[in-house]
């Protein structure tokens, strides 16, 4: 039994790593008032670029760099559209995802034809700590990207919290752009920075999917993980630590899907897949705890309103 539990926990943490990365950025962007549905597209493009980079250069680290740049590029498009051109954030987000899906599928037809495995990251167990029963393999036997995911999520959760000026500025912009502007905050700059930050973390998350999990790119490899990152932010009620918890929980729920048949448990997979969305729905509707979205979420900023 404990072996199965260990399996579920370590699988859950592994699946949670890309979610953590993506939602750490997404949280900042939503706090600044930009609903980045395109985080799915950023991840997908990141996964594609990561795989392509690793294939061309033969180095996984170079692949990660490519993924980072690709995520930033998609984020730049999203930022120009939703901040400078004040286009509808939902339309641009969903469409950017469709664009990323189309472009990467097209690119995969031309690039990845032989289906060979790529240079990737292997697990790096930490000597003593990974021997701890139950949580050892889950927390201390990850790939370099996995450790990075936790480090980045923790750094963002702490560094951009309201303890610091930056965190306050982000929240101010997300609540009321006009007031923030009157206080002298660079509203557009902050929103650009927040969206680009999401691009960076989502690109890394994509690289994690392609280079740490499977060492290959397949069409639509993200398959909704990006949307799940948005959902984790909603379920975390736009607060950092609850979002981290939500990511971990979602990861475990996914791992359960693979582990349940092994213990002879018949839980229909669709039920497990749906759990995160139901939890987010309950959280956002205030049925469990209080929840309030940033009031400027999806509201574009124009000085002459």
């Amino acid at each position: 039994m404990s072996a199965v539990l260990e399996e579920i926990l370590s699988g859950g943490v592994r699946l949670a790593a890309p979610l953590l990365l993506a939602s750490a950025g997404e949280l900042v962007s939503e706090r600044a008032g930009v609903l980045n549905l395109s985080v799915e597209g950023m991840m997908l493009t990141g996964a594609f670029a990561g795989a392509a980079g690793a294939m061309v250069t033969g180095s996984a680290v170079a692949g990660v760099a490519c993924a980072l740049v690709a995520g930033l590029l998609v984020a730049l498009i999203q930022a120009i559209l939703s901040v400078t051109l004040r286009a509808d954030q939902i339309v641009t987000g969903i469409t950017a995802n469709a664009l990323a899906l189309g472009a990467t599928t097209y690119g995969a037809r031309l690039l990845f034809t032989d289906g060979s495995s790529l240079e990737g990251f292997a697990a790096l167990p930490i000597p003593v700590l990974s021997e701890i029963p139950l949580i050892g393999p889950a927390l201390f036997e990850q790939t370099a990207l996995g450790y990075l995911a936790f480090a980045v999520a923790a750094a963002l959760a702490f560094g951009l919290s309201r303890r610091f000026t930056w965190g306050l500025a982000i929240d101010a912009v997300g609540e009321d752009t006009l007031t923030a502007d009157r206080c002298g905050l660079p509203v557009r700059l902050i929103r650009y920075a927040a969206v680009l930050l999401t691009g960076a973390t989502a690109g890394l998350a994509g690289a994690d999917l392609a280079l740490a999990e499977v060492h290959a790119f397949s069409d639509n490899i993200t398959g909704g993980v990006g949307y799940l990152a948005v959902v984790a932010v909603i379920a975390g009620r736009w607060r950092a630590w609850p979002t981290v918890l939500a990511c971990l929980f979602f990861g475990v729920a996914q791992a359960l899907q693979f582990a349940a048949p092994a213990v002879g448990l018949h839980v229909p997979a669709p039920l497990l897949v749906t759990i995160p969305y139901v939890i987010a729905l309950l959280a956002v509707s205030g049925l469990v705890g209080r929840s309030r979205a940033p009031s400027g979420l999806t509201v574009p900023f124009a000085r002459t309103a």
Partner: peptide
């Protein structure tokens, strides 16, 4: 031609229109 290219064209079209609405 991969059908994905039409998806690319379609989403480019939408993005351009959304961008030009301003």
């Amino acid at each position: 031609v991969p059908a994905a290219s039409v998806q690319v064209v379609q989403s480019l079209l939408v993005l351009l229109i959304a961008a030009s609405m301003i």
